[in-house]
């Protein structure tokens, strides 16, 4: 007993160091393996509150570009409306997606695994695994959610895998990021027989319950034969202000159906 106490006494700093390092590594490995209910995230009132304050000042400097983007979106939507000037029978149409607008408080794009913090949370109807987009295209999926804030896994993240397709021939693949350039992402697993060329548009595939089909991603920049396709994003991931979170109103129904299928 005496020996043990003396041992602890002698190496107490080393033991403290080991213990704390173990805790830190535990959080790190948790963030790399299962990132749905992570303990360390910026969706809490303290970090969110600080980001909110800084954002109040910061957003002032982006007013002009944000206005231009909004006016462009308005014009596009109005043009779309005019295209369909005949009356539509809406009696047997059901709303499948709902948009919730939100603001980005913090945005990273230089790390390997990038996250965003947004200003809406559970109280505003936001949950984990919802699609996040803006008028130019895809941004990511929600991750940790607190009462008033949520974090978003950016598409610039090792753990972001999103179903995507080439717009004009409906071949599906998986969108990922190699960690190099924040303007370029990669499309994998496109079938061999798919025909495509540089400049083709890539959109989301709609095979998941998260993203609706046809949300813009980018255009093909270059590709190696039968291998990776590099895609230059429509969105400038370094400058994101206002965003929309998309709720899939049929999500539970689809998941229930799939669960019964698997039994």
């Amino acid at each position: 007993m005496q020996q043990i106490i003396r041992f602890i006494e002698k190496y107490r700093y080393f033991l403290l160091f080991l213990m704390l390092e173990f805790v830190a590594l535990f959080f790190t490995i948790q963030s790399h393996s299962y990132h749905k209910s992570r303990f360390i995230n910026s969706a809490n009132s303290i970090t969110g509150g600080f980001y909110k304050r800084v954002n109040n000042i910061n957003e002032f400097f982006h007013l002009k570009s944000e206005n231009i983007r909004l006016s462009e979106e308005n014009t596009r939507l109005k043009n779309d409306l005019l295209k369909e000037n005949h009356t539509k029978d809406t009696t047997n149409q059901f709303q499948r997606y709902q948009y919730i607008s939100a603001k980005v408080y913090n945005n990273n794009y230089t790390r390997r695994n990038n996250y965003l913090t947004i200003n809406k949370g559970l109280n505003d109807g936001i949950d984990t695994e919802m699609a996040v987009v803006n008028s130019k295209g895809i941004i990511g999926t929600t991750n940790s959610v607190s009462g008033n804030y949520a974090t978003v896994i950016s598409i610039l993240n090792n753990y972001s895998l999103i179903n995507a397709q080439i717009k004009n021939n409906h071949h599906f693949g998986t969108l990922s990021w190699d960690g190099m350039d924040y303007k370029t992402v990669q499309l994998n697993d496109i079938p061999r027989q798919a025909v495509f060329k540089i400049g083709d548009t890539i959109v989301t595939g709609g095979k998941s319950t998260i993203f609706p089909a046809g949300i813009l991603i980018g255009t093909i920049k270059d590709f190696e034969q039968n291998k990776l396709i590099n895609i230059s994003l429509f969105n400038d991931m370094s400058a994101i202000g206002n965003i929309q979170v998309i709720t899939n109103l049929h999500k539970e129904e689809i998941q229930q159906l799939e669960a019964t299928n698997n039994e």
Partner: peptide, 22 residues
Amino acid sequence: FLLGLAIDFFSNSGGINAAATL
């Protein structure tokens, strides 16, 4: 350790800053 962890909280990075700073 706490300093690193505080940075991690803000930047959603697990415990990497805490481990390195410790």
